[in-house]
Design a protein around this nucleic acid. Structure first.
Lengths: 127, 127, 127, 127
DNA sequence: GTGGTCTAGACCACA
DNA sequence: GTGGTCTAGACCACT
């Protein structure tokens, strides 16, 4: 067995920002909070905030203008990919763990189809 | 956002033992490894091993006979419940996270039904 | 006119390491100094050393094994590319500046061909 | 390794003025901009501008007439020397760095001769 | 104000 | 020992 270790904070924040992008709370071209603001929002250090934006930039999700700010990339396509990736990871993890518990695909389908629909879903603008 | 913190080791081991029960690798009435052996298997401290059996006992999953050993409960019903609980947790987590990503139940059903069936599943004796 | 600004230390060190690779002082698969050692050698902070290795890793020039060390990539091809890139930059910079001074290609060729050959070149094992 | 430090601004401006002289944009005997104008053009402090002219004067490249202005020296010979010096520095730096990368003089000649000729060179009146 | 770099020092996980 | 993360605080360049 492998012990699960804690995800580094900077990755957790990245995950959270990615989710906001997918949910449409952050849109292509939007200005992201300044490093200082991000540090305050997430109660992290400014250096950690800087690393987060550096990593996001390396992934092509945002770009930076010195003295101005950091902005989400304009290309919506890469955010659609992001959504597919996240969904794929969730699906794979779920199917494998259910399989380990002895559930067949049919059984899983049955469980999913019996799961209560999220009612009164807050209207959001997902990508 | 809430930061995810590491699960304590004793809980991770309990999860693993529960999975083995559900998978039928451990059967009702089976003798569990001694505290000393469990500590070795999972590379944990003997005190942690003792705590694990104490917790499992509190949940009614096993009982201890001094000088003899620790044994899985005979009542298969509570292990079936266990399976349902674990499956329920997985299902809930999956559906909620997919929902947050903007997937409807129909979309999820479609993804699940398109997921490749685990072929050549090792023959196991799940409860 | 644009004022030339100081290259960040971490980039200067990266340049130096790249040069050592091209010169064959560091070979594919070699273990690089530990972060602590690099910090001492270059009189920089450990965090800066870590960043240097992180950047080199992002560029595919090395890989890291936690608790073990950082190693140069095995693929010699990417180091050959590195040499070509560095040479291309130098060439471009030189030709353009000479051009700005009013030298034609013929004049430059004449100057280069009149430049004294490096005598007694220390035998090195360049890629 | 030695860390490269930023060139002082006044030296950078001097380099730029020298380049303009070599390029013939400034000719022997020409009146140079007033200290005030130079400060504006290069976005520098007037004191820095004054220092620049003082240094240029020390090198014999210009002379100052109180109340009239600063003028480039009449003697074209010293500007020819300037051009040779600059070219020599560039050449030396280039040859040495290419040598460090493992390029022989032949290889360098081949690269230089393969470098695309600057086409449609703006007609300039280099010394 | 913005982002970018650097340091000093701490703690953790892995081996 | 190794690398990985995080913090606190500083200074710089750009606008």
């Amino acid at each position: 067995m492998e012990y699960v270790t804690e995800l580094p904070i900077y990755l957790q924040v990245i995950r959270d920002l990615e989710k906001k992008i997918i949910q449409g709370k952050l849109k292509p071209g939007d200005r992201l909070p300044s490093g200082r603001d991000l540090a305050v929002q997430y109660k992290i250090n400014q250096n950690t905030a800087a690393r987060i934006y550096r990593e996001l930039e390396d992934m092509g999700y945002c770009f930076t203008r010195r003295g101005i700010g950091t902005f989400l990339a304009e290309d919506e396509a890469i955010f659609r990919m992001l959504k597919q990736e996240r969904a794929g990871e969730l699906l794979k993890g779920f199917m494998e763990e259910m399989g380990e518990l002895g559930f067949t695909k049919e059984a899983i389908l049955s469980l999913v189809s019996g799961y209560p629909e999220k009612k009164g879903a807050e209207k959001e603008n997902h990508i």
